[in-house]
Design a binder for these strands. Sequence first.
DNA 1: CCACAAACGCAAAGAATTTGCTTTTGTGGC
DNA 2: GCCACAAAAGCAAATTCTTTGCGTTTGTGG
Lengths: 192, 192
Amino acid sequence: MNAKQGPRPGGRSARVQASVQTAVRELLATMDRSEITVPLIATAAGVTPSTIYRRWGTLGELFADVAVERLRPDSDPIDTGNGWTDLEAWAEQYAEEMSSAPGRELIRDVLAAADTNCSQRCCSYSREQIAIMAERAAERGESFPDPEAVLDGVVSPIVYRILFGDAPTRDRIRDLVGRTMATTGSGSDERH
Amino acid sequence: MNAKQGPRPGGRSARVQASVQTAVRELLATMDRSEITVPLIATAAGVTPSTIYRRWGTLGELFADVAVERLRPDSDPIDTGNGWTDLEAWAEQYAEEMSSAPGRELIRDVLAAADTNCSQRCCSYSREQIAIMAERAAERGESFPDPEAVLDGVVSPIVYRILFGDAPTRDRIRDLVGRTMATTGSGSDERH
DNA sequence: CCACAAACGCAAAGAATTTGCTTTTGTGGC
DNA sequence: GCCACAAAAGCAAATTCTTTGCGTTTGTGG
């Protein structure tokens, strides 16, 4: 009975993992993803192809791993002083980032992975950002929709449109935010 | 000046295309997609691997092609006599089909393709089905939301949840439909 | 029926992936 | 500190997939 359950003893795994992921990011910045191969990454990272194959299995899983990391928000949503405009600003920025060519590819990489965990983590990132805005709104005494309602009403249409059609315009996003805010029970809060 | 612009002269392309797609469907029913390879498909279809590579480029594009075909609705949404319940029934069935393991894989295959056309067509299928329900509702004199609003309010949350988290429950879907129907201008139409 | 071009088959060349075995490298016990 | 252990990495051969050049087949339009 011991208290540790992680990779018990082990090798230099963390170091290798980092160098491989860095190599992928660098290559991704340089060339088209369809040109990138495992042997190429291995060379760039200073490891053997078999190391990558054994650790990630396929190129797709490796890309997904890197993509999830890049999709992680690096800061809290900006505070505009109002929940409504917080959400608007965040949604607009989110849509802009995700509808760019690199953004779309990140999402696709995540979804392509067999490991469902990747896409769930990606969703949680949004959920957490929304929760932060909700909490701030609560502290101000404003009403704010349930984070799940925001995922349904704002995030999912944005992502759906990006993946299956055309990226939503700014007006469209404001509209989505407006509709979602409107269903917040009281609906008494103004936009400004 | 002639009136034809399709693949002008040409080979036996249609026949080969069909046999390859059939082979993919059959293999997909038999084994896991990660086990399926181009040479395998080629053998099953009675063609050469190079034929597949030249026509589709990658396994992913071929899978996407087959997936789009399978995602095409084979019939109109059932007519329940009322727009609201039509939409509910359709959404529930859609969610059920798409949240199954095979359904999820179809969506992923479509999204993984470099050819954006595939995912757009997939979206159009839903749009068309919704338009049919809208038209029927109009004929009955009921109000019905704009098809785009249904895509935003009903389809996109369902797809988003399936892709990024857990498939929505039946109750959740009814809720989505309810909220979307409620924003239909007048809001005077009852559910039954 | 002929000429044409797209598409296919074939096979060799070139890459990528898998796999068995050896070596390295942290970790924990002594 | 030093040893023994096991996970992880390196290496290289074997396998499998992908690309490519070239000759052949097969519809289509004249």
